[in-house]
């Protein structure tokens, strides 16, 4: 279970990215974050594994609050998938996936590159699961197409059996036709392991198709929290529509108006 307790973030330049966000995400849920650009979705994700530190509030994973002492432990249980894939272009696919386990293998193995052969077998299995072939394993990551790179990134995310995967716009750099496939892979891989997924998206369509639960954000606050089926007229206006802006800024916590008790699925 993942808990956000009254999370707030103000950047050094004064930008307020998160305002008092409280959420509870149960284990195994595929939770999609929607919201316009600058809503604070990325900031919220990065707060979970400490890439961004919160100004107020805290994040707990299975009852363990993220702090200086628990950072390493939590990072090893939480994987991340990025919009730009963030593979190392000059390393091959095998090395890229193996690098996902660096937090868990002993330092001497990490630095010499002598990974356990069972781990290499596991990489092959993961690569097959995301739809890559044997011929891809020793190709350089930079030689793959965008869709293939994101498949590698998903394999990398699952190598350590994470309890939570943070996916920040995993399909934003991809073609629409491939987007659904990639999200399907992400959903299947996490469903198989009962892994929680927190995924930001820009396409409402995809959210409807894949999410167990949708969280709509705007201006650093949660303005919608409910099932994808509830994503219609009013809710979408709250999240995206310009006209709702005035209303939201006057009543900062619009979520109280729309969904007083966040609906968990």
């Amino acid at each position: 279970m993942l808990n956000f307790n009254q999370c707030g973030k103000t950047f050094a330049d004064g930008t307020v990215a998160l305002r008092d966000v409280s959420l509870e995400v149960p284990r195994g849920q595929f939770c999609v974050l929607l919201g316009p650009s600058g809503a604070g979705k990325t900031t919220l994700l990065r707060a979970v594994n400490g890439l961004t530190s919160l100004t107020t509030g805290d994040v707990e994973l299975d009852g363990v609050a993220l702090n200086r002492h628990t950072l390493g432990k939590i990072r090893r249980r939480v994987a991340m998938v990025h919009q730009q894939f963030n593979l190392v272009g000059r390393l091959n696919v095998m090395e890229n996936v193996l690098s996902g386990s660096l937090g868990d293998v002993p330092a001497w193995r990490a630095l010499t590159g002598l990974f356990d052969s069972r781990l290499r077998r596991k990489v092959c299995g993961l690569l097959q699961d995301v739809g890559l072939a044997e011929s891809h394993v020793y190709k350089r990551a930079s030689e793959l197409s965008g869709g293939q790179q994101q498949r590698v990134a998903i394999a990398r995310a699952f190598i350590m059996e994470p309890v939570l995967v943070l996916a920040d716009e995993p399909v934003a750099s991809l073609d629409m036709s491939i987007s659904a496939t990639i999200l399907e892979l992400l959903r299947d891989a996490s469903a198989k392991r009962n892994t929680t997924v927190l995924c930001t998206l820009h396409q409402v369509e995809l959210a409807r198709q894949f999410a167990d639960r949708v969280i709509g954000m705007r201006d650093g606050t949660v303005v919608y929290d409910g099932p994808p089926s509830g994503l219609c007229g009013e809710a979408l206006d709250l999240i995206y529509d310009k006209r709702a802006e005035v209303e939201i800024s006057s009543r900062r916590t619009a979520v109280d108006v729309l969904a007083p008790n966040a609906i968990a699925v």
Binding site: L51, R75, R90, S99, L102, G103, D104, A110, L111, R156
Partner: peptide
């Protein structure tokens, strides 16, 4: 920065990040 951050997020140590996300890039 991206690849380094990706490895930092897995809990990798500084040297491991250097070895896997920096050195291949700058080699």
């Amino acid at each position: 920065r991206g690849p380094q951050e990706a490895l930092i997020a897995t809990g990798a140590g500084k040297l491991a990040v250097l070895r896997y996300a920096v050195i291949p890039q700058v080699l």
